[in-house]
């Protein structure tokens, strides 16, 4: 029986962001951009969608007079990620 995949997570860039954040305490926007190889504009849009879904917390602050964006996964995000991975497993050949 195939389980429905969370449409928020079933997108390459959003899934890449969530996979990065699941393993760390928090990460800067520039780090995520570098590791995912995405453009700042696209990444910003996708992180906003994850934030709206309550999966990611976005902290905006200043570092040496420059704006800095820090992202961290929320407990709801961890749950959604785990559910997504479990659902994925139903699609894999046994």
């Amino acid at each position: 029986m195939f389980k429905d995949l969370d449409p928020i997570l079933h997108s390459q860039l959003r899934l890449a962001v969530m996979s990065l954040l699941i393993g760390v305490k928090e990460a800067e926007f520039t780090f995520i951009k570098e590791k995912t190889g995405s453009t700042a504009g696209n990444l910003s849009v996708q992180i906003s969608k994850l934030k709206d879904a309550g999966y990611v917390e976005v902290i905006k602050q200043f570092k040496d007079n420059y704006p800095q964006t820090i992202c961290k996964i929320t407990p709801a995000g961890i749950n959604a990620f785990e559910t997504y991975v479990k659902a994925l497993q139903t699609y894999l050949p046994k």
């Binding site: 899934l15 699941i22 590791k35 994925l88």
Partner: peptide, 17 residues
């Protein structure tokens, strides 16, 4: 695909860690 998803997850986790 599901396989692509899992590969992506695996590669991102290892990149971060």
């Amino acid at each position: 695909s599901a396989k692509d998803s899992l590969q992506l997850i695996e590669s991102m986790i290892s990149k971060a860690q």
